[in-house]
Write a protein that binds this DNA or RNA. Structure first.
Length: 559
DNA sequence: ATTCAGCGCGCC
DNA sequence: AGGGCGCGCTGAAT
């Protein structure tokens, strides 16, 4: 293992680090768990050097996690701003979940060529690692996360970080040629001059102007506030230019306007410019940010990896002789809710592959659409429309599940924190939030203050309501992905890109890029890992987590 | 000239 | 007015 702190003069260049890690990566019975400050900082160079790491412990991600659990600030020693340029720490730990005290507790094991560095005073990050180990092992008491669950979450989070770097490294196969053809078909040829409208878009703009009896070039289609004013001048009663609001209007200009907005969106978000910026050598390399969202979901950083419109997915094409194995967890969030709440009736409704259809068959609601709307409303805190109308029926049939989300909402409204299955903890509402709640509850509060505070409390309640479900779904997805990743990799299979590998992740969906003859293995791996994830989170709960799997050449051909 | 909030919409 | 995001654009603020 290798240590260099800010005083050390020995610098491990990426090749030396890669060699040191590669030498120990295939140890039996289990490969080491490398401990380092930041997977995103160190792993790309290793992959570039051809070294694939099986397991790691990401100090920054776990610190972020534990800080949330214990309501303390994150460790400043792990702030990105102070990231040393030299290797901070890479300690192999043999214990699977990082909570077992190793025989040799000192995490300093000099590797060849790094003895000088290793024998120095331990770097601060070694202390961070030791503190984290103790933190993970701490019994927090009833109702609080257990060492087992937090260790599992730390491992899943870290595995996700590895997968994220690997997916960026390998990339999603993307045909720029087909993307361009798609754009040309929908928008017209790419304009020669920057900023000019493609001809199909211009034709729609002209049509809108014509139908509004406006002069050419006078309707500002790309500026929402001005567009609203223009529409109002034309006698249309609109308060915004949102599509769903425009859809309600009966006016000949609306149809081309909506088509314009749709295509304009395609052009600006995923048009030629995006293609040039984000697709190289037949690959789109998603930039994921593990732990980037409070709920534990991943975020993305440039490229919009988590917002790929369905419209452009036909450009995602497997290499010749290869396929995309596209897997999707079926109705993940309601299933998560059923398992979290131990709702036996909902578990029965989910016995088949389609939980929403199961709800219909239970007699709770009349249609699959109602079941879906109602469940989404229950998990998001919807209070109006169709979803609110269906809710009472769901409540009668699935009282335990509905009570679970209601409890989470009430806790949030009181300013309490809530937790996911593995212990990720929601943030505390701001000081100001608490302050306004207190003021509103006092005698001198105005009616307006009370109403505002009530609304704010409800809003936070909707957040905590959703947090438990979305956050636990994220945990399931991480566990799933980690299991798939572990099953796919073979040390004898050559470089990552030459064997079946994860290529894309989207909250409850995975794409594996694989040689066609391996598609069967991959499907088995995906299904086995999904079953494992359910057991890891919920033990012997009757709730299943079926996935749909499609073996396709184009992403758009899945489901 | 640059930064920022709000809008609108893409994904789950 | 239902939760979580990212991103490009606009127009106002700096």
């Amino acid at each position: 293992m290798l240590v260099a702190d800010e005083h050390a003069t020995t610098e491990l260049d990426p090749p030396a680090l890669a060699a040191a890690i590669a030498a120990r990566e295939h140890e039996a019975p289990e490969p080491p768990r490398w401990v380092w400050s930041d997977t995103a900082r160190w792993y790309p160079d290793l992959l570039a050097a051809g070294v694939r790491v099986e397991r790691c412990h990401d100090l920054r991600l776990v610190d972020q996690l534990l800080a949330g659990v214990d309501g303390r600030p994150t460790d400043p020693r792990l702030a990105r701003a102070v990231e040393p340029t030299r290797l901070p720490l890479a300690a192999p730990q043999a214990d699977a979940l990082f909570e077992v005290e190793p025989a040799d507790a000192t995490p300093v094991v000099p590797a060849d060529g790094a003895r000088d560095a290793g024998q120095r005073e331990p770097a601060p990050l070694v202390d961070v690692a030791a503190a984290q180990r103790a933190d993970l092992a701490r019994e927090r008491g009833p109702g609080l996360p257990t060492p087992r669950d937090l260790a599992l979450l730390a491992a899943a989070e870290s595995a996700g970080a590895l997968a994220a770097v690997e997916m960026h490294h390998v990339g999603l196969p993307w045909s720029a040629e087909h993307h361009d053809a798609l754009l040309t078909e929908l928008l017209g040829p790419r304009p020669a001059s920057l900023g000019a409208r493609p001809e199909r878009l211009q034709a729609l703009a002209t049509e809108v102007e014509h139908r509004l009896d406006a002069a050419s070039g006078t309707v500002p289609l790309d500026s929402p506030p001005e567009l609203v004013r223009a529409l109002r001048r034309a006698g249309l009663d609109v308060s915004s230019s949102r599509s769903w609001e425009l859809k309600r209007l009966d006016h000949p200009a609306i149809e081309p306007l909506l088509r314009y907005k749709k295509l304009s969106r395609l052009l600006t978000a995923n048009g030629w410019h995006w293609l040039e910026q984000n697709v190289r050598d037949g690959r789109f390399r998603p930039s994921y940010v593990p732990g980037g969202v409070v709920t534990g979901r991943w975020g993305s950083d440039g490229g919009g990896a988590l917002q790929l419109p369905k419209l452009v997915r036909s450009a995602v094409r497997a290499d010749p002789g290869w396929v995309l194995v596209v897997a999707d967890a079926a109705q993940l969030e309601p299933r998560i809710l059923a398992a979290l709440s131990n709702d036996a009736a909902m578990a029965r409704a989910g016995a088949g592959v389609d939980l929403y259809q199961g709800i219909v068959d239970s007699g709770a609601v009349a249609s699959r659409e109602h079941a879906k709307l109602g469940m989404l409303g229950a998990m998001y805190g919807g209070t109006t429309g169709q979803s609110a109308r269906v809710l009472p029926r769901l409540q009668r049939v699935f009282p335990q599940a509905i009570r679970f989300v209601e409890d989470a909402a009430r806790a949030g409204e009181r300013g309490e924190r809530v937790r996911t299955r593995l212990g990720r903890t929601s943030p505390q509402p701001s000081e100001e939030w608490h302050e306004r709640q207190l003021v509103a509850a006092s005698d001198g509060a105005s009616e307006a203050q009370r109403a505002a505070a009530r609304s704010e409390a409800r809003s936070w309640g909707r957040f905590t309501r959703n947090f438990v479900v979305q956050g636990t779904a994220a945990e399931w997805a991480l566990s799933w992905m980690a299991g798939v990743r572990r099953r796919l990799w073979s040390p004898s299979g050559g470089p990552l890109a030459s064997q079946p590998h994860l290529a894309y992740f989207l909250h409850d969906e995975l794409i594996v890029h694989a040689p066609r003859e391996r598609a069967g293995d991959v499907e088995l791996a995906l299904r086995a890992a999904a079953a494992d994830a359910g057991r890891l989170l919920f033990g012997d709960s009757p709730v299943g987590f079926p996935i749909t799997v499609a073996v396709v050449e184009r992403y758009s051909d899945a489901k």
